[in-house]
Amino acid sequence: MIEVRGLCFAYDDVEVLHNIDLRISDGEFVAVMGENGAGKTTLIKHFNGLLKPSRGEVLIDGVSTRESTVANLSRVVGLVFQNPDHQLFSETVFEEVAFSLRNLGYPEETVRRRVRFILETLDLGGYAEESPLMLSGGERKRVALASVLVSEPKHIILDEPTIGQDYQQKERLRNFIVQMNSQGRTVVIVTHDVEFVVDCKPRVVLLSRGSILADGPYDSILSDRILVEKASLIPPQISILMSSLAGLGFNPKIIDLYQARSALEKRLCEYVSEHV
């Protein structure tokens, strides 16, 4: 459980998070969304103790982050940063991915097995002996993801995981995240990628200017035009379509492709049977 109570945080003198309250239960899937500079990265840096609250507290599985170290918390909280270039340094992809397992003191046998597995899962199997620095942007991003996910932390926090990935790679990433989530792991993703969120169907926490603007199921939040605009997001395409058809009696709250399809199908059938 990740529990945030009355969290305020200031860099130097400027407060960037104001009185955040948030409970994320074990096994939940949460997307933190909001405009650039809203404080999303600052918030998740509190989840493994990199930042400590100026006021309030953050509890991971009931223990305050003040009473633990980042290294200790990294056993249960895996945090992947936005820019892979800020962490890749090893000679080979294999060594890069093994780094956190070695830091955590796993036996060599386990290290090998787990690294091989995660590399296969994230479609990096062929790169084990390549230099991570020479890979393409999307591949470097997946190496960075692999290097944290390899220790199978109980809570997984990903900052902008879909940037630089093409559609297929996003799908593979989503399948992997969903798989981790269905094994009971908590997943928190920070993202602007509205369509990715619609595909993932998580709970959405909308952050704006350091405060929580809204918190709820993805469909009720992302179909709310006013909220979405306030957080500088574009509404999902289906939502744009359905609300532009609202005059014809379509439900503008629909944001799922399959619901949209069946609504359209139904109307079309009605139309055909009435007029033909």
């Binding site: 840096k45 990199l50 170290t69 290294a71 992947v80 944290v148």
Partner: peptide
């Protein structure tokens, strides 16, 4: 600022 981010990223991977 970049140096600080790198330190944060590696500490998140268990580097002490």
């Amino acid at each position: 600022i970049e140096a600080q981010t790198i330190v944060d990223a590696q500490r998140s991977r268990g580097l002490e």
